[in-house]
Amino acid sequence: MTSTAADVRSRGKELRKQSKSTTQSVIVGTVTLVVFLALWEILPTLGVLNRVLIPTVSDTIWGLGQLIIGGYWWEDLASTLSSVLIAWTIGVAFGITMGVVLGTSPFVRTAITPYAIALQALPKIVLAPVLIGALGFGPESKIAIAVAICFFPVWINTMVGLSLPSAAEFTFMRSLNATRVQLFRKLQMPSAVPIVLVGMKHAMLLSFTGVLVAEILSSASNGLGKLVKEFSIQLNMPLTLAVITVVLTIAVSLVSIMDVLERKAVFWSESERGKKS
């Protein structure tokens, strides 16, 4: 393997080794959570923090209960989730396409790279007003903003992934007189899978961020972002935090699903092997 490939693969290994859940780290983690929740409960109750602005844990749980019983927000949840998934799908498809085109064609790469770097540097959220202006307050603008934010890591990781195979691996394929298509399908693409999946995972969270920002910025008619904005304008903090809890749960679930997919697809990469052994 190349040193780069090994680096990419072993970085994951180290991270996972560190987070390997020994009994001790489980205990430490639990204690941290208990202390955090206790402070969260006690400080607003004692008046150290303003309970109206920072409600306690129990207030938040009550809010969550209200939210679930109320049930008026399913449409918001569905709208946000569907926008996230649609934007992610578009962003991933676009990112992989761009990555493959640039990763396999030196000419296109030379032509585009400087602009790509400029685009990467741009905090893409600044495009939100433009996109909302152009596409209106509906789901189109939400999706467009999320796509603009989320496609980049997929693009870059695909490009990098295709160049991961070592010189020896390329030479071996050349000694078989492999065509460029075969080189791509049998060597470059499988080599790129692990790092592309990492990009796709980042893209998922970025897509979520993009949709929420769009919902908060625009006067969207629905969505979890709109819900947060409305509750906080009403100073209804328990419900605001309840929605944030929902957002957190969704984000963790999305990442977990991506983690499972990643583990299944790249069982052979060094990071995964490190975890098993």
Binding site: A168, F172, L176, N177, Q182, P190, S269
Partner: peptide, 30 residues
């Protein structure tokens, strides 16, 4: 490069996502 030639290098160059036999059969696929 011709197909009636087989080259072997200092590095084995086995693709980690393929089993041994799949690696052995790679030239046939190519």
């Amino acid at each position: 490069p011709r197909r009636d030639i087989g080259m072997m290098f200092q590095q084995a160059v086995m693709f980690p996502w393929r089993t041994t036999i799949e690696n052995v059969l790679l030239p046939i696929e190519v």
